[in-house]
Nucleic acid binder design. Structure first.
Ligand SMILES: [Zn+2]
Ligand SMILES: [Zn+2]
Ligand SMILES: [Zn+2]
Ligand SMILES: [Zn+2]
Lengths: 158, 158
DNA sequence: CTATGTATGTAATATCATAACACGTCAAGA
DNA sequence: TCTTGACGTGTTATGATATTACATACATAG
């Protein structure tokens, strides 16, 4: 079972599980999980939210890492390349991938009230999109699917 | 039949048809289609591509309109609000809506080779997304679906 | 003709992102 | 061992995108 950001959960399971997978993923690909990169992933994992590059940078800087934008952007780019984080276009922000290592196209559910970001299974969505595109002769290679709405908790209170 | 950006077509039909609909839409909603706003829509309609706000601004400025960012951003925001244009998050850019007036959620097909942007019918995609989100208790209100790939023309030459 | 709301123009600033270069580390390979 | 080259990190500087705040012009209703 995958981490369920929308429900109460032992969040240490999320972080622990994902970090372990992350180490495995990078080891397998020959990439190096350095202190900055590891710390950035940890920062992203602290909350089920998307953080801007400058938010991340601020925390890095407070911990003695570099304080210039490329420090954050490079680590984030690395994580995205490794499939350990995703970029949320709509928010100009980044979020930790909650199930790294498993091939997956992203479909993000963004709560407009509490800003929680979750990944939803995307296979049927993607199939429908491929079909619609094929009608026009267009070959989809990558798709960004970002949904704005209300998470269960915020939907109830509303 | 809707305009078909991916095929040879009499582009004046696109612009004429869409501009006429645009005037109707704004009239119906009580909004004012002013010179700047009309010109911005025309600029977007000149090509089936997405243009950045500063690209639009540059053209406006050359034609005697204001030369500061808000001039472009305000007109673009107006068009988006009226459903006459869409924002492409992935490109930080804007494109004219090719079928204004008809309710539609956006699904964009962006050719990575020639930068053409088309809108695809989205109903089935949206249904799949709603279903996937519902599984997690999430209520989708708005969705951005942006696909990157190859249009028919560019797919053939590759 | 005035008052009111709306549109436009402009200056200044905020936010997001990258290019270019310097330095340190580490692991081949001569 | 020494060199060399790849890579990661740090820093400066700049570029690209977007908004805030305020001033001015203009429409239209009363
Ligand atoms: Zn958690
Ligand atoms: Zn919420
Ligand atoms: Zn056309
Ligand atoms: Zn193309």
């Amino acid at each position: 079972m995958q981490p369920q950001p929308f429900h109460d959960h032992d969040h240490s399971h999320c972080t622990g599980d994902v970090m372990a997978r992350a180490e495995a993923v990078t080891a397998a690909s020959g990439a190096r999980m350095t202190p900055v990169r590891r710390r950035v992933l940890e920062i992203l994992l602290e909350e089920h939210r998307a953080l801007g590059a400058y938010d991340v940078l601020q925390r890095l800087s407070a911990e003695g890492f570099g304080n210039q934008p490329p420090v954050a952007y490079r680590a984030l780019e690395f994580l995205v390349d490794q499939g350990l984080a995703h970029r949320i276009q709509r928010l100009n922000a980044f979020t930790a991938c909650m199930h790294p290592g498993t091939s997956h196209a992203p479909a993000f559910l963004i709560c407009r009230s509490c800003n929680t970001v979750a990944e939803a299974p995307v296979a049927p969505v993607r199939a429908a999109l491929d079909a619609a595109a094929a009608e026009l002769g267009f070959a989809v290679e990558r798709a960004n699917i970002e949904a704005l709405g209300l998470c269960p908790a915020c939907g109830e209170t509303a």
